[in-house]
């Protein structure tokens, strides 16, 4: 087991260096000289240019620059944003809770609906429920979520006026954000209506971001359940006279969960990609919107640092899932 964990950790290191190398090369591959961009329309004198390039290390050989960058990254130094002048690291972790909150709720939404839908479809294989649920899941899986968001806005914000169009909370409310989770902070602030407002802001983005994971989980649960339901021990359980609820709920679902957990883990990358679109549409102040805005503002250090932090986060999640998988399923460790 220890060998397995160490082996997995060892493959993490070259991947990490590669990811750093890619995000490092982006700032040099982007069109335009970074210092000219920083100087803006007023331009910059030759002396000042030399001074600035010495300050940012652009006059050094490329491998020295990379080494400096890599050591900086390991110490949590990702440079400062061109626009706000604040450290990229601080900005990332100030906005991250918003994305985390949205992603967590989207995932909970997807799992709470997806698992039962998959189980019901598998148990009723080939019948009406199965076909209806799986057709819906395929539609969800094919959904352009940016359009789905606009549709929901038309219906629920435009026609019905149930939910607000953008942001995390009404501007009326102001309170400190110790956890960064609007749902918790608004409740803790004790202001009347703050919690309801936060929930109403969260509903549509959660549905939009959760749609594709929901469809994927429902499809995966169904196929895993079908596979397990064909096993001998299920027949044994049936022969012993266990109730269908007990067979499906305990014996089958528990074993069907392993591939489903993998799919849930793999959705983290999808979720972050979806967060880019969802946050842009709903003006949700999280990592996705921050990245898109920075790309348009040509804020290179932010694009570079954000790309790296997001990739490392996805890698850590995948690594954790790999290890959990090794714990759950001993067969994997042997490979």
């Amino acid at each position: 087991m220890l060998n397995y964990i160490l082996g997995r950790l060892l493959t993490f290191i070259p991947t990490f260096i590669g990811v750093t190398l890619i995000s490092f090369s982006f700032i040099r591959a982007l069109p335009g000289d970074p210092i000219q961009v920083m100087a803006g329309e007023r331009g910059v004198s030759a002396e000042r240019y030399a001074e600035l390039s010495a300050q940012y290390g652009f006059d050094q050989p490329i491998y020295v620059q990379f080494w400096e960058y890599l050591t900086g990254v390991l110490q949590g130094d990702l440079g400062n944003s061109f626009v706000t002048k604040r450290p990229v690291w601080d900005e990332f972790f100030a906005l991250f809770p918003a994305t985390l909150e949205l992603s967590l709720f989207a995932m909970i939404f997807a799992i709470l609906l997806g698992l039962p839908a998959g189980v019901i479809a598998a148990v009723n294989r080939g019948k009406f429920f199965d076909r209806a649920l799986m057709s819906t899941a395929l539609v969800g899986y094919s959904m352009p979520i940016f359009w789905w968001a606009l549709l929901l806005i038309i219906v629920f914000s435009g026609n019905l006026q149930w939910t607000p169009v953008s942001g995390r909370i009404d501007l009326l409310y102001y309170f400190p954000n110790p956890t960064g989770f609007m749902i918790i902070d608004s409740l803790a602030s004790g202001q009347e209506g703050a919690f309801t407002s936060a929930v109403r802001h969260l509903v549509l983005p959660t549905i939009v971001l959760g749609t594709i994971p929901l469809a994927v989980i429902a499809r995966q649960t169904r196929s895993a359940m079908l596979e397990v339901l064909g096993e001998d021990y299920i027949r044994t359980a049936r022969a012993k006279g266990l109730s269908p609820g007990r067979i499906n709920g305990i014996h089958a679902l528990r074993n069907a969960l392993i591939p489903v957990i993998t799919v849930i883990g793999l959705s983290v990358g999808t979720l972050l990609a979806g967060a880019i679109l969802t946050e842009t549409i709903f003006s949700w102040p999280g990592i996705g919107k921050w990245m898109v805005d920075s790309i348009f503002r040509r804020d290179y250090p932010v694009v570079q640092g954000g790309l790296l932090l997001i990739a490392v986060m996805v890698m850590i999640v995948n690594l954790t899932i790999d290890m959990l998988y090794g714990v759950i399923n001993p067969k994997i460790r042997k490979r």
């Binding site: 493959t11 069109p31 898109v292």
Partner: peptide, 24 residues
């Protein structure tokens, strides 16, 4: 395979966005 792992570590839409920002 490590190189492929590196590409897969980035969420696809984000990587595509940044690539397009570079290429125009």
């Amino acid at each position: 395979m490590r190189i492929m792992d590196i590409v897969l570590a980035f969420p696809s839409l984000l990587l595509a966005l940044v690539l397009v920002a570079i290429l125009g």
